[in-house]
Design a protein around this nucleic acid. Structure first.
Lengths: 310, 310
DNA sequence: CCTGATTGATCACTTCGACATATCAATCAT
DNA sequence: ATGATTGATATGTCGAAGTGATCAATCAGG
């Protein structure tokens, strides 16, 4: 038995007329009669009572008509589902964010994906350091990463999506909280709160900025992430240079000030260069279309059909 | 797309090995590769990631694997359902009973059908007179009828399934309630309760019995059915001759007595001779196998009955 | 690094069956 | 009666499903 038999049967069952059913199926009437007879032979029972003037369903035929409608609908739904997945309009994308990017990039990206690809679910891993994201992308446990370049290797494609200057976080009652036109040199005497961990790109930028301003910062504390860092600043245990995106998550007792000659940090989106997951590609497409990748070079959209059939 | 494609795909999805899958499908491996590629082309996406050493499902493939399992299972279930119906093991049979047959024949028949054909539902029409059953059978609103012959025409097949003598129903305080060896002649002076309606086979038998005993019964009342008749007897409004099967439904205040020379009534099963409904045929089969039709193949061995009825 | 084994893809060929055309047989309306 | 309608039947054709042989790649093991 083939779907052909079911489709033909369904047409006859609905029209109760071999000629018209054949017409609708774009085949000749004898072919239809033959196919129905095959189906009846395989099932071992008549499905129609035919007189030359009238076609009627048997009890078995009525049962099969309902079942066939269900089966054919299920097949069509399956095809649609596969197509949806193939076009990337449905699926799961696992995306990670570095600490502060969660405040600014995550809402933007999530909103765009939700609007353009409502069938794509995002599995969000917040507050993952760059090196953790790189290993996650490499071993396949992540699909996208919002991280801080540079990263090594060409297995991953990395595109800058934002630049943010380092800004100064000081307690409200700190003298610098009132000062305008702050420069790095003004921070020479401050005690700094830095990120712990050797591989922090933010730390590197902070230390570089200080060195270029001609001093080495005094370290008061080392903390694991921004979420811990700002409360310490609020407690007046020191000052900190943090990515500008923390402005999106203000904290009482902390004032953020621009620093004229502080370094800037890149925020980039990274993915496996050879990733073929349609929903990942679709997410990249809609993000690009939404102008998230100002500096992103042209990418081909979804794979072509002949590429598949090759 | 055909079921062939889905079956082939399912085999590859399960084995993750084109060679093994082809073997299981009893086809050569190139044919399988070709069919899967057709399916992929129609769906517009890859379903498998093939390396020469390993086969893996894509996201779309995993989705389709589940859908395919459902579809193929549904198809198989449909085939089984059709076969069940075709064998008569599932369906609806509309069966009617004359008044008193409902007491004795209905439980027997219902029990046998329930045991042998649990998938066949009986739609029971109780207390239908013979002529109503004949018209119901003829116009297709009934499938089987338990009725009292004779019936006319050869569109219906009629087979006797029981014989029951007329028995006398008298009030408990009636003199005949104590008497043994009652004969028809003893009823000459009684007032009778008869069935109303000209076409009552029971009435015909009662009147015939009376005539043969040499009297015409005095009619006290005419009622529509046994359910009304016996209460009237209990109320001492008269006596009645009723089919013996009413013994199965005793009523307080009514005594049933044998009458030595009263006529006997046939109870028969009737159905459309050209009925092809499998569940009806199956019910007939199990009833015959259960010995319900003991007296019917003897039609030839009792030719005198035919001559009498002629 | 070879080398043989394994595995899926490709190619050329065959065969079977799905379908078309022509026709027939039965039924119905007039 | 007669023409129209409708499904079944007869016969031929072409496409595609399948086969066998072969190729290309990957991997294990010395």
């Amino acid at each position: 038995m083939e779907l052909r038999h079911l489709r033909y049967f369904a047409a006859v069952a609905e029209t109760k007329h071999f000629g018209r059913a054949a017409e609708r199926l774009h085949i000749a009437q004898p072919a239809l009669s033959q196919a129905v007879r095959q189906l009846e032979a395989e099932l071992g029972t008549r499905l129609f009572v035919r007189t030359t003037r009238h076609v009627e369903l048997t009890a078995a035929g009525e049962f099969l008509r309902d079942e066939t409608a269900r089966v054919l609908a299920a097949v069509e739904a399956s095809v649609r589902g596969v197509r949806r997945i193939a076009e990337g309009r449905q699926g799961l994308v696992r995306i990670a964010f570095t600490g502060t990017a969660a405040y600014t990039q995550l809402p933007q990206i999530a909103r765009i994906v939700k609007r353009e690809l409502p069938g794509v679910a995002l599995e969000i891993h917040a507050d993952l350091l760059t090196h953790a994201q790189v290993s996650g992308l490499t071993d396949g446990s992540l699909d996208l990463g919002v991280l801080r370049p540079p990263t090594t290797g060409d297995a991953l494609t990395v595109r800058t999506i934002a630049q943010e200057p380092l800004v100064l976080a000081v307690p409200v009652d700190h003298p610098l909280a009132q000062q305008t036109d702050i420069a790095m040199a003004d921070l020479r005497a401050e005690e700094f709160i830095l990120f712990s961990g050797a591989e922090s790109v933010v730390n590197d930028a902070v230390l570089t900025s200080c060195r270029e301003a001609g001093f080495t910062p005094t370290v008061a504390h080392r903390v694991a992430g921004t979420a811990v860092m700002l409360p310490l600043v609020a407690a007046a245990l020191g000052v900190a240079l943090v990515p500008g995106s923390v402005r999106a998550a203000q904290l009482d007792g902390v004032v953020l000030r621009d620093v004229s000659d502080a370094a800037s940090l890149d925020l980039a989106l990274a993915w496996r260069t050879d990733d073929t997951d349609p929903s990942v590609l679709a997410v990249l497409d809609v993000l690009e279309a939404a102008g998230q990748f100002t500096s992103l070079p042209e990418r081909d959209s979804t794979p072509e059909l002949d590429e598949v059939s090759r």
